[in-house]
Design a protein around this nucleic acid. Structure first.
Lengths: 331, 331
DNA sequence: TTGTACGCGTTATCAG
DNA sequence: CTGATAACGCGTACAA
């Protein structure tokens, strides 16, 4: 910028004014400066710019489990859409359900002074965020903060799980299995608890043999582990074998579909989260709208950045049961 | 940092040393400083840090079409893995195949002084990048740069297309349709050209009625438009109707699968790119490895940043035909 | 082992 | 309308 000023024969501040389109510069001067900008291929440095007090980085941080999971990819897209619309950019990082990694990533993002943080948490205690920087606007996604007051955009997992169980029971099932990963510990536990409650309410009991929750379902191999788990369930003696399965995430659903492929008996299946081509495969799912979740979370974050200061909100997104065949197999 | 220094009764520089773990500070001093850091909740500001000459932002920019497309999501994950492993962060933005948006995003990223840029281009001329900043390491993904010397990590679309055509011809097809979107103009044109060549070589001619390339396949609605296009093909009189279809991207494949669902006649289908659950649906695809593409591109970018300076490279990733049923329907 | 002075590229303030 | 100067938070060079 100094070079541009020299080249144009004006002061630094004048260049700044022209570059930022501020008013109060003579057209002739503007032309001179613009010529110099062209000649020297000058490009404003937004890093230095955001160093100024008051000025922000115009950046949002997003930490998710895994971009390659369509559920999180949709969240990412939603957040990106809103961010771009407001002139913000999004730093996205996958923590792979690793609490340690999550902390590292969050810390790095805070050091970079992101104006806002969107977080799908894997860790069990988020006081470290407040400890690091109290002034960053943080919105939790999919799972609430632990030990921290913060906004959260969540799914109605309780409702969704109830719908699924009710649907299967209505189709005559009583031996319903629950297969989940533990990636979102909170989510998983919550859905499992709802499952138990719903089962007790509608069937009278839960067969714990039919509950598989995460032991061994490590990150990165959820699909394979879910497949194994479902195979194991299907190899139980006939009278204890489940007639229906509820899978609690899209990864698990995909694994279950693989496992059920070769099965002689038709087993009912309802999965949490949409799965691509699920319509063609006839997979009944409890669907939510992760794109909208990402949008809402980003919008809330930006509102907070721009001064909104009512108490932390907890927004719960609805779920919807989409019958497509697999959930309507009679028990 | 000044406050910390005051609180600890030491100089600014000493705090800097402690914070960055530099040697040559007395343990007692370290303790004092660390106490002050705790008390004041000090967190290093990496924005200011990267402003220093020589210091970089440790950030990579990635511009893709759409994170919600599993192909690009896989690229994103690969790039993120490598970035994280090297202490870099990734700013990812979806340009939705809009050349204008691509330019805006790239410009914004350059202004933020990303150290490297990974770009799945939609625009047809990339001189603007060199014009803006000559010193940023740029690697193109999926499609090469136009009017710019730059590294590129590409797919072997020619080979993949040939494989697909050969496969279908080997199964007795002669009336093979090509359905593509124009999202990657370069890619689309190239695959279509290869398709024509392969058809002429193996069948002797191309029925242009069976070539649908993008007219009307606008961004964001590729799936629906592909579905419509395939429906139209299937409603041709029997002797001109295709007996096989080659779809040139995962979005188009999904649309085609929807269109073919209700069809009375079985039509063969080979798609470019993997589609999730394609194995269960029996979809024959020409598969590549987008995760690895993202990794390789990020690695190359980092090597460039760290000084590698051989001439621009063009890395071509192999493709593989995966027979699963839909491509083996006899013609 | 610790401190001082300066500069990174920009914008805010205030004077001319 | 335009310019000089300070400041943002940090690290480098050098001095103490």
């Amino acid at each position: 910028m100094r070079d541009v000023a020299a080249h144009a024969g004006v002061s630094l501040k004048t260049v700044s004014r022209v570059v930022n389109g501020e008013a109060g510069v003579r057209p002739a001067t503007i032309a001179k400066v613009e010529a110099a900008v062209e000649a020297l291929r000058f490009e404003r440095n937004d890093v230095a710019r955001s160093l100024r007090p008051g000025h922000r980085t115009q950046t949002l941080g997003l930490v998710i489990e895994d971009v390659a999971n369509p559920y999180f990819a949709a969240i990412t897209l939603g957040a990106d859409q809103v961010a771009q619309a407001h002139g913000y950019l999004l730093i996205t990082a996958s923590a792979h359900a690793d609490a340690e990694r999550e902390r590292e990533l969050v810390t790095t993002l805070l050091r970079r002074r992101v104006d806002g943080l969107l977080l799908v948490p894997s860790s069990a205690d988020h006081r470290y965020i407040a400890r690091a920087r109290a002034d960053v606007e943080t919105v939790f996604l999919d799972r609430p903060a632990r030990n921290l007051e913060a906004d959260a955009v969540l799914l109605d997992d309780v409702g969704g799980t109830k719908q699924a169980v009710a649907h299967l029971v209505a189709h005559g099932h009583r031996r319903i299995a629950f297969v989940g990963d533990e990636s979102g510990v909170y989510t998983a536990r919550r859905r499992l608890a709802s499952f138990r409650r719903a089962m007790i309410a509608r069937v009278g009991a839960v067969d714990e043999q039919l509950v598989v929750n995460g032991r061994g379902l490590t990150a990165g191999a959820e699909v394979e582990h879910a497949e194994t788990a479902v195979r194991r369930l299907m190899s139980l003696p006939a009278r204890r074998r489940p007639t229906a399965i509820f899978t609690n995430s899209n990864r698990v659903t995909v694994g279950a579909l693989h496992a059920l492929r070769g099965q002689p008996d038709r087993v009912a299946l309802v999965g949490f989260d949409e799965v691509e081509l699920g319509d063609l495969l006839g997979v009944t799912v409890v669907r939510s709208n992760p794109l909208e979740m990402g949008r809402i979370a980003a919008e809330l974050t930006l509102e907070r950045i721009h001064g909104r200061d009512d108490p932390p909100r907890r927004i719960v997104m609805p779920t919807e049961l989409v019958p497509r065949g697999s959930g309507e197999i009679a028990g």
